[in-house]
Amino acid sequence: MPIFKTSFMRRFAVSTMVLGALAGYQTSAFAGAGHSGGHGGDGASEIGAPGEISDVRRTIRIAMEDNFYDKEKIIVRGGETVRFIVENKGEFVHEFNIGTAAMHADHQDEMMMMMEHGALEIDKINMDMMEMDMGNGMSMKHDDPNSVLLEPGKTAEVIWTFPKKAELEFACNVPGHYESGMVGNVRLQ
């Protein structure tokens, strides 16, 4: 099952890139629009894949405050499927995103753009702007399976199947938050 998922993700990512190439946009100049298409080819397989509720053996609750998580690190077994219940207890928008440091760095640029364009405010997500057609059939929509972006007071769930081995972080990529320390380690055992 996980194997299928991985290959599915990879194919999906590759097709997005091809589509992008055909449409003639450059990833660097248009990173934000890549939201609906995952985070590029390499990351997807490394970081694991969306999990099924039936595989969940463990639930981890994550509280997001301004601007930190209540946990410094998460310890999971390789291949484990975990349900995260993520609650934003702060007054700002926060994200819970599982990925590599490099993916987070890319994502930070995208989030910065969302903020510059008003799709994201410090305490509010403007959904209509996120879904606005940006051309090429892309939008700034933030709906990656490896992350949730939450307004203050909101709670959401992420079910994630971790890979056997990877260097992963969970992080908030709202501008400035990662840099000021809203990031933790995922330790795979």
Binding site: G118, M129, G135, N136
Partner: peptide, 21 residues
């Protein structure tokens, strides 16, 4: 720069050509 009012009037269909950096 975060005023969404400014952005609302922009033609997003052309944004692909903009240098966001």
């Amino acid at each position: 720069d975060t005023d969404p009012g400014i952005m609302a009037g922009m033609d997003h269909s052309n944004m692909a050509g903009m240098d966001h950096s």
